[in-house]
């Protein structure tokens, strides 16, 4: 890629102002680092294979502290995973929880529902979309359907443009 850039730069098309050299250095250095990491990982994989040579390898259920028969309803879900992060970013990601409090000693049934609102979606509508729609509603009279007046608009536009262009 850098060969191509050099070739283009030689044509003198004024692309030379963009300093490619530092980027070339960065990407070369990052590639070197990544290669090192890959080499280290491969080496460790080989080491791991060596360590496991002739070792007993068992299989069993996930360790669960007596938690032996989970169902899909009991799983740790994506929203549980994100819960603490969402709590921290609550101002930016308003979380709505619908959870009626349980009543009585033997509550029959309850439900829990949570939804993270998109702050952009929420505020874009009331702050931007609604005012603009209202404004254009007010300007509806311009679009009246009279073809003669539309031609008049075009003429007016051309006359106005004559002053500026």
């Amino acid at each position: 890629m850098f060969l191509a850039i050099k070739a283009v730069a030689a044509l003198g098309l004024d692309y030379g102002r963009i300093p490619f050299e530092p980027f070339a250095h960065y990407s070369a250095a990052i590639t070197l680092g990544a290669t090192l990491f890959l080499a280290a990982t491969l080496l460790l994989l080989a080491l791991r294979r060596m360590f496991y040579q002739g070792k007993p390898i068992g299989h069993g259920g996930t360790w669960g502290c007596g938690f032996t028969q989970p169902t899909a309803r009991m799983q740790y879900t994506g929203s549980s995973y994100a819960a603490s992060i969402l709590a921290f970013f609550r101002p930016a990601a308003p979380l709505e929880e619908i959870h009626p409090p349980v009543a009585g000693l033997f509550p029959r049934e309850t439900h829990y529902h949570s939804h993270v609102h998109d702050i952009v979606e929420r505020h874009l509508n009331c702050l931007v979309v609604v005012p603009i729609v209202r404004l254009f509603d007010r300007l509806r009279w311009i679009q009246h359907g009279d073809i003669h007046l539309y031609i008049g608009y075009i003429l007016l536009a051309i006359v106005v443009l004559l002053f500026f262009v």
């Binding site: 990491f37 496991y52 390898i57 259920g61």
Partner: peptide, 25 residues
Amino acid sequence: GSVYSSSTTFVFKLGPVVNLGTIVT
């Protein structure tokens, strides 16, 4: 030796290796 959970895949085995590889680098 090791005991692996039956629900794990190669990702589980790759975790420790990559972890050590990154910090060594």
